[in-house]
Computed example of a mutant assay.
Amino acid sequence: MVAETGRLQNALEALEKALSGLEDAVDARTDKLQNREDLENEVRIVHEDRAGLARELDQAQFRANRLEEVNREVSRRLVTAMETIRSVLDHER
């Protein structure tokens, strides 16, 4: 009877150890899944930020191109105006 109690105690200890190991494995897996979800969320946020920055860059590039076109037009008009003024001044001399 004492021998059976000792074996039963050993079996219970082994079972407790196995359950503890199982709980640790479940906890580790849960943490890993949570970390993965966190990483996936961060990647999603980074992609959203990148898309927003790409849109802003496209808009800024459009504005820069438009300003460049306007600058060329203003420059052309200034040259025309200067030539006209020179022509008028040359005729007055």
Rank of each mutant, 00 (worst) to 15 (best):
L67M: 11
R66Q: 15
D27V: 05
V46M: 14
H91Q: 15
V26H: 11
L67Y: 12
V70I: 15
Q34T: 07
D38N: 00
R63D: 14
M82V: 04
R77E: 05
A11E: 13
V26N: 04
E73A: 05
L39G: 03
R50G: 07
M82H: 07
A81T: 05
L33R: 15
Q59C: 07
D31I: 05
E92A: 15
R55G: 12
T30Y: 09
N41K: 04
T30L: 13
T84C: 10
L67I: 10
E56Y: 02
D49S: 05
A60G: 04
L39A: 12
D90A: 14
L78K: 00
R66T: 15
D90K: 09
N71V: 07
N71P: 00
T80M: 02
N41I: 02
L19E: 06
R44Y: 04
E73D: 02
I45R: 12
T84H: 13
A18R: 08
E83I: 08
S75I: 02
A60K: 04
A11K: 13
D90L: 08
R66D: 14
E73K: 02
E37M: 14
E83A: 11
F62L: 06
G21C: 01
L39Y: 09
T5V: 11
E48T: 03
E13F: 08
E16V: 03
L8A: 11
S20K: 07
A81E: 07
A81L: 10
F62H: 09
E56F: 03
G52C: 02
E42Y: 11
A18C: 06
E48W: 02
